[in-house]
């Protein structure tokens, strides 16, 4: 039975696409047939983070409008045969999305994939609502920052009111919290919301904490999901996140501030 997972946040720029790319790559790497769909119609970006921007021929809207088959539009990842990408359209076609048409595409994908990852656009408009409508589970991407936490809370409200599971009174969507751009040192000094604060405010289980790291930008510059950078803390943190999502019980890492040595304190980093 395949699972549909929406990666969402409400607020823009918190790391939804970065998380979608790494989450999907992680699932695929462990042998699960995975497809990641870019729901951000008009502002396609997932293709860049996955490094397949030059291989886009057809897109999600083409499939919805039956101008192309799924087979034609799906792009297979260069490094992993288990991973496929369904890119967003560049032209803004607001009316392309209907529950029925998106549902048809998702149902067709269910035949060939174990995990269907939906990368949501920011906001609470149609695209975001469509991305979450068919979800079985949700990754709520949140920064330790006041507006991001509030917007995540709004999105949690949407999941419990506007999703198919909510409307049809089925078992609710399973929600997982992913905190990105976390800086333990700043949380320790009380200048940044701590993990405990965020969990207390949002009241959902934590599945991953991704520390603030230069590796994320380097990975997106190169078009490789950061999870494949095994040396980086962010990559390792995403690996851990995927393991926890798949049911492994492993402790959170990178939660303590790095202790600066005496010389570093004197002469600077």
């Amino acid at each position: 039975m395949s699972r549909v997972i929406v990666v969402t946040s409400g607020k823009g720029g918190v790391g939804k696409t970065t998380t979608s790319a790494s989450f999907a790559a992680g699932l695929a790497n462990r042998g699960h047939r995975t497809v990641v769909i870019d729901f951000d119609i008009g502002l396609r970006n997932l293709d860049l983070l996955m490094g397949c921007e030059r291989r886009v021929v057809y897109d999600f809207v083409n499939v919805i409008n039956e101008e192309a088959t799924l087979k034609q539009a799906l792009i297979r990842d260069k490094n992993d045969n288990n991973l496929h990408i369904l890119p967003a359209s560049q032209t803004r076609d607001k009316d392309a999305f209907t529950e029925e048409k998106v549902g048809n595409v998702i149902n067709e994908l269910r035949d060939s994939f174990d995990y269907i990852v939906c990368d949501s656009p920011a906001g609470i408009e149609k695209g975001a609502l469509m991305a979450l409508f068919y979800a079985d589970e949700a990754l709520i991407v949140t920064n330790p920052e006041i507006s991001s936490v509030r917007d995540s809370d709004r999105i949690l409200g949407m999941l419990s009111a506007k999703s198919q599971r909510a409307i049809e009174g089925e078992e609710p969507i399973k929600e997982h919290l992913v905190v990105t751009r976390y800086s333990p040192a700043r949380a320790e000094t009380g200048e940044m919301l701590s993990l405990d604060d965020i969990q207390e405010l949002l009241g959902i289980d934590l599945v991953g904490v991704i520390p603030e790291s230069k590796a994320v930008l380097q990975a997106s510059n190169s078009g490789v999901p950061v999870i494949r950078d095994e040396q980086s803390k962010s990559g390792q943190a995403y690996q851990d996140m995927v393991s926890r999502f798949l049911g492994e019980d492993i402790p959170m890492r990178f939660l303590d501030a790095e202790k600066k040595g005496f010389l570093k304190r004197i002469f600077g980093a």
């Binding site: 006041i146 000094t189 919301l193 604060d197 405010l201």
Partner: peptide, 21 residues
């Protein structure tokens, strides 16, 4: 000295989120 403003953020979020709920 850096100000521990996270507590303020948390308090404000508690209030605004309770209202929004």
């Amino acid at each position: 000295p850096t100000k521990a403003t996270a507590a303020i953020a948390k308090e404000r979020l508690h209030i605004v989120m309770a209202h929004e709920h």
